[in-house]
């Protein structure tokens, strides 16, 4: 009887260990899968030359967007574009001025141009901020990540749409 109880206990312990291991493996797999998903913003629909629907539930904040476009290390917008709220001597001219962009393009058109300009012009030098078009040898710190989050893109869309010229 004692031996049978011991065997049953051992078997139960072994089963528990296997379950734990399988659980860890499953969680690990899900984490990896989540990282892979993080590479691009998912769940948006392109209609014509626009993404009509916002990327997030909450509307973007134009004031936060104004700060973001002037950020020289995160969004980098001001390195190439002028017409933004930033000191004139810090604004680049590699790309068109964004002065009055809100009068020329709809919110949805602006949104697609930020998320993936290359959908409209594969030769464009504008990075796809939604993360769909990284180049070779992406550095570790940035691998598998979009350049900006959906919230940040919505803030910038709100700000640029307010630039009516």
């Amino acid at each position: 009887m004692r031996a049978a109880a011991l065997t049953a206990g051992l078997l139960a312990g072994l089963l528990l260990a296997w379950l734990l291991l399988a659980g860890f493996l499953l969680v690990g797999f899900l984490l990896v899968a989540a990282r892979a998903d993080a590479q691009t913003l998912v769940g948006y629909t392109v209609e014509g030359d626009a993404i009509g629907a916002p990327l997030t539930g909450a509307p973007g904040d134009a004031a936060r967007g104004a700060g973001l476009v002037a950020d020289r290390t995160l969004s980098l917008c001001v390195l190439c574009h002028s017409g933004l709220e930033a000191p004139a001597h810090m604004q680049g001219n590699l790309a068109p001025s964004l002065a009055g962009i809100g009068a020329r393009l709809s919110e949805g058109q602006i949104r697609l141009r930020i998320v993936n300009m290359k959908a409209l012009n594969p030769e464009s030098i504008m990075p796809a901020y939604g993360g769909s078009s990284p180049g070779a040898r992406v550095a570790n710190a940035w691998r598998g990540k979009p350049i900006l989050s959906g919230e940040e893109i919505e803030d910038i869309v709100a700000y640029l749409s307010s630039l009516k010229g």
Binding site: L76, G92, W142
Partner: peptide
């Protein structure tokens, strides 16, 4: 001419095609 990095830019994108432009406040 190979596009590299998260920003997907080649040397040529700036230094062949836009060398007379400014990146931020700096000449390209």
């Amino acid at each position: 001419e190979q596009r590299m990095g998260q920003l997907d830019l080649s040397c040529a994108n700036c230094h062949d095609d836009h060398w007379s432009a400014r990146l931020g406040g700096s000449p390209v």
